[in-house]
Design a protein around this nucleic acid. Structure first.
Ligand code: FES
Ligand code: FES
Lengths: 151, 151
DNA sequence: CTTCATGTAACTATACATGTTACGATTCAG
DNA sequence: CTGAATCGTAACATGTATAGTTACATGAAG
C-alpha cells in the first residue's frame, strides 16, 4: 500500500495540482486532485492548505466546492512555492556538528558549507526563474508535439 | 541519548576523522575517533569500512591497532569520498513520480530535474576541487590564526 | 593465554513525509 | 430543514535511512 518514500515531493505535487487546476474550469476537489497525483485527499488538503495560507489558492466548502488558483500564473515562481511550503531542507547531506569547537571540524564544515551554499543558491535562482506560466507553456508544447507525432 | 538526526553526516564525519588521522602519528582506534566525532565506535567502523573498501584507509586489529590513511592527501577529493560512501542521495526533495504518463507531470519533472541536475553538477564539481590536503592546509591556517589572536 | 581492536550481525531509536481514520464545520441542493 | 458534499484538522500508523547499541567472533600483540 505504501510506495517508496525517500524524499519530500510536495513541490512536485503542488506543481502538478496547480497546472491541472489551471487547465480546468471551476474548482477541483481534494478527492479529484488526489486521484491525479496518486495521493491521499487528506494529504492534498494538508499541502494545498499551505498554499492557501500563502494566498496562492482558495478553497470553498460544501457542494461544488474545491480548490481554485487565486494568483496570476505569470507571477508565481517555483521559489515562491518552495517558500509557501515552509522552505523545507534541500539537502539530505549535512554537517555532523554545526557549531564545533574543534578547528579541524571547522575547516571541514567551512568547505562543505561553501559548496552546499553555492549549490543551494544556484537551485533557488533556477526556481525563481521558472513560473507556473512557463510550465503551462511547456505542457502546451508537449501536448502539441504529441498530437503532431500521432498524425 | 539520541541527538537530532535528520541528515546524512557521514561525509562530514569521515573528513573530520581523516584529518585527525593525518595530524596523528600511528593508527587511531575507532574508540578514539568516536570520541572525537561524538559518535559510536561501531558507527565509526561501519563508515570507515566503506573507505577501507575503496582503498583509502587500512585497519589493523589487535594491540596498537587502528585506522591509518593509505592514500596521498593531495589525491583524495571530497567527490572521491562521496563516491566511497556509496554516493548517497544529495537532495531531500524530488519528484513524486519519476516516470509519469501525464504530460503535465512530465513538464513539471523536466523543470525540476533540470534545476536539480545543475545544482548537483555544481556541487560535485566543487567536491572534486577540494582535496584532503586543501582541508589540512585550511586547518593549519586556522590554527596559526588562533595562535596569533592569543598573543 | 589474555587483552586489545576490528568485523559484523541484529536490534533499537529518531525524524519526517506520507497514509489513514475520524469527526467537526460549512455550503448548497432538494 | 434535512442531508449530502467538501474542506479543516486532529490523531495515529507506516516506511525509510542513518545512527546508536549490544553481542560475539576473529585476529594480532604482549
Ligand atoms: S494533469 Fe492530472 S494526472 Fe497529470
Ligand atoms: S580533530 Fe579530533 S576532535 Fe576534531
Amino acid at each position: 500500500m505504501y510506495s517508496y518514500m525517500k524524499r519530500d515531493s510536495r513541490l512536485s505535487s503542488v506543481l502538478h495540482a496547480l497546472l491541472h487546476m489551471a487547465e480546468h474550469d471551476g474548482p477541483m476537489t481534494s478527492e479529484t486532485l488526489g486521484q491525479c497525483l496518486g495521493a491521499n485527499p487528506v494529504v492534498v488538503r494538508r499541502t494545498m492548505g499551505l498554499l492557501r495560507e500563502a494566498g496562492l489558492v482558495s478553497a470553498e466548502r460544501g457542494h461544488s466546492g474545491g480548490w481554485r488558483i487565486s494568483a496570476d500564473l505569470k507571477t508565481v515562481s517555483l521559489r515562491q512555492l518552495h517558500a509557501a511550503l515552509g522552505e523545507p531542507a534541500i539537502f539530505a547531506i549535512g554537517n555532523r556538528n554545526e557549531t564545533p569547537e574543534c578547528l579541524v571540524e571547522q575547516a571541514v564544515n567551512a568547505a562543505l558549507d561553501k559548496a552546499f551554499l553555492e549549490a543551494e543558491a544556484l537551485l533557488l535562482d533556477r526556481f525563481a526563474d521558472v513560473t507556473l506560466a512557463d510550465l503551462a507553456a511547456d505542457f502546451a508544447r508537449r501536448h502539441a508535439e504529441r498530437r503532431a507525432t500521432r498524425d
